[in-house]
Design a binder for these strands. Structure first.
Length: 463
RNA sequence: UCCUCGAUAGCUCAAUGGUAGAGCACUCGGCUGUUAACCGAGUGGUUGUUGGUUCGAGUCCAACUCGGGGAGCCA
């Protein structure tokens, strides 16, 4: 007999009602009386469980009655309408095979656990309601992002994970090496001799695919990367991880306004997509994780994002009368408290902040005509803060070279990046979108460690 | 890295410097429609680690480890 998925039962109920079916899954909870009992079984195909009714007509009733949570079972029986209020249908079991009895020291109980505890059993937590919902949404979202870009003709570029360049000089990097740590070779200056290393030079894990993807942008016009990114920063916050995923689109013949339109369209598209494709999971988040979730997401869908310049943002903050821990001053970067005030108190919706002072942004961002600011944009959203950071890139070779020397960067190390400007360079722009931050924003989960299967953070690489 | 709070049974949490406790989980028994099922009984502890103060430390002190919240860096 062919196995039916619980997802099919919920999506095409009439097809299976009063029919004989076979189900394979794991016991989520069991309640037993003297002569009958109930099992809630989950087969992994769907967020919700199927309730099983069984009684002592089963040959192995006594064994079934002693099933432990998370035991694997295979059932045959009839799908019938349920008299109970909490489920539309249930299965009247005629045969239950115990595939594997779960050991009694199984750490997950029927009761609620703290996320902190569940992080210590990251190999078991996908079996809980919350993590089942988080990781199915993560999967749906990843697909939605590809679908969005592919539908618009963007080419997916796999930029390298191991890199010889130090993109934007941003953050500490993880060194990649096959040198024997016990016998590091030093050259005459006493420095490490990377010519003896695997690649014949110093290499690291990537902190951004942007510089590489810009080269493909000049060939395919519209491109994007979507892959793992690594930062060796000892950041200990609910929003940072040493290994995370990032989406980085890049568009040729496009300016900062095109860039912001793309970011806004992308966010709205994936919100719609995940609401449509994972409604049970989203209902769960709205009910148990963040009661304002739907209101917040609908607000994003139904509003045009606000646009202000950095200079205007400083004015807003100064006129607000709010007392901030950090002073508001033109030329200084916006602090988290400033960003949150802008998006949560003043605009109450996503806000693009553009045209930051050139001193506080990266070397590759395009200098504006005022020669004081660069064509950068950050998208701030209520609750999460900065979710997108992007810019129009400096395409003018002389200006880019000047900027690099101001930042103390060695031109020779970026020869291929500069070549793009020499050989048919054009205006272009792009941004980075933190995948985990999107998941947090769309689910209401507040810690990045709870939206990554096996999170890597300082002093933590278990599993 | 800085500030701050915390760590007690498998889990969630109690315990005035003076005998280490409850609910859930687990084991056994009861119960004919349950929904975190219910009722009864039982098992379960080197109180994060190391050192100190004290007649006596889960409780006070110090360092360390890990975790939460905030900050910085950013995505």
């Amino acid at each position: 007999m062919k196995t039916t998925s619980i997802k099919e039962l919920f999506r095409e109920t009439n097809k299976f009602l009063n029919q004989n079916i076979k189900i394979e899954g794991w016991v989520r909870t069991i309640r037993v009386s003297k002569n009958f009992g109930f099992i809630e079984v989950n087969d992994g195909t769907f967020f919700k469980n199927l309730q099983i009714v069984f009684d002592d007509n089963l040959k192995n009733f006594n064994e079934v009655a002693k099933l432990t949570i998370s035991s694997a079972i295979c059932l045959e029986g009839t799908l019938v309408e349920s008299p109970g209020a909490k489920q539309p249908f249930e299965m009247k079991a005629e045969h239950i095979e115990i595939v594997s009895l779960c050991a009694p020291d199984y750490p997950l109980q029927k009761k609620r656990h703290s996320f902190e505890f569940l992080r210590t059993i990251a190999h078991l937590r996908p079996r809980t309601n919350t993590f089942s919902a988080v990781f199915r949404v993560r999967s749906v979202l990843a697909f939605a992002i590809h679908k969005f870009f592919q539908e618009r003709g963007f080419v997916y570029v796999h930029t390298p994970i191991i890199t010889g360049s130090d993109c934007e000089g941003a953050g500490e990097m993880f060194r990649v090496s096959t040198l024997d740590l016990c016998q590091i070779l030093q050259d005459k200056k006493g420095e490490i001799d990377f010519s003896q290393d695997f690649f014949g030079r110093e290499t690291n894990l990537t902190v951004s695919g942007q510089l590489d993807v810009e080269t493909y942008c000049m060939a395919f016009k519209n491109v994007y990367t979507f892959g793992p990114t690594f930062r060796a920063e000892k950041s200990n916050t609910p929003r940072h991880a040493a290994e995370f995923w990032m989406i980085e689109p890049e568009m040729a013949f496009a300016d900062l306004n095109d860039n912001m339109s793309l970011a806004e369209d992308l966010l709205k598209y994936i919100i719609n997509y995940v609401m449509e494709k994972a409604p049970e999971e989203m209902d769960f988040f709205n009910s148990f994780v963040d009661k304002n979730l739907f209101a917040r997401l609908n607000n994003v869908l139904n509003s045009d994002f606000a646009h202000i310049t950095y200079t205007e943002a400083i004015d807003y903050l100064k006129k607000s009368g709010e007392k901030f821990d950090y002073p508001v001053e033109w030329g200084k970067d916006l602090q988290t408290e400033h960003e949150r005030y802008l998006t949560e108190k003043i605009f109450k919706k996503p806000v693009f902040v553009t045209d930051y002072p050139k001193e506080i942004k990266a070397f590759y961002m395009r200098i504006n005509n005022d020669e004081k600011t660069v064509a950068a944009m950050d998208l701030l959203v209520p609750g999460v803060g900065e979710i997108v950071g992007g810019s129009q890139r400096e395409e003018r070779l002389e200006i880019l070279e000047k900027r690099m020397s101001e930042f103390g960067l060695n031109k020779e190390d970026y020869w291929w990046y500069l070549d793009i400007r020499k050989y048919g360079g054009t205006k272009h722009c792009g941004f980075g979108l933190g995948f985990e931050r999107v998941i947090m924003y769309l689910t209401g989960m507040t810690n990045i460690r709870d939206v990554i299967s096996f999170p890597r953070t300082p002093n933590n690489a278990e599993f």
